[in-house]
Amino acid sequence: MHSFGYRANAVVTFAVTILAVMCAMASLSDNFNSPSPTADVKVLNVNWFQKQPNGNDEVSLTLNITADLSSLFTWNTKQVFVFVAAEYETPQNALNQVSLWDGIIQSKEHAVFWIHTTNKYRFTDQGNNLRGKDYNLTLHWHIMPKTGKMFADKIVMTGYSLPEEYR
């Protein structure tokens, strides 16, 4: 009953159980946080607008992104992944989501930010539907916990549109 193996087994089992319970509690505590993030994205300029050799439309935008995501952070937050996506419908596709910019925020201090940037990823359509297209810009965030369940949500901003002509 009191062999080395038996005791080691009991200690390891107990330690792992306690660790698992603590991880679960840390993850569950995230549910008590009710965040109220704010965001605003302005399209300052349409830099150029072209048809790619394969026929797909491509646009280059200059964006101004302002956001306050500090309320997303809890003690169990490892990082917040934030990205701005253009979202629109086309005759062929019920939904198109194209990520234009993203960033990784690793602390609450950096969660209030203002950035002036051109699109980091290519804004290309699957087809040539971007001329005069109305689209939404959506700021998405994915909260990565230190341990446990991941959370995600978004703010949708409507009323953006692209020019009619290539240039």
């Binding site: 992944f81 990205f83 996506a85 596709n93 019920a94 939904l95 198109n96 989501q97 194209v98 990520s99 993203d102 990823y121 290309t124 699957q126 998405h140 994915h142 991941m150 995600a152």
Partner: peptide
């Protein structure tokens, strides 16, 4: 878009864990 997915083209290969940045439905 934004979700982290696990994918592979060939079942024999090691799966990849990456984030969706563009999606057309």
């Amino acid at each position: 878009a934004g979700e982290i997915i696990v994918f592979n083209f060939d079942k024999k290969k090691i799966p990849v864990v990456h984030r969706v940045i563009q999606l057309h439905e």
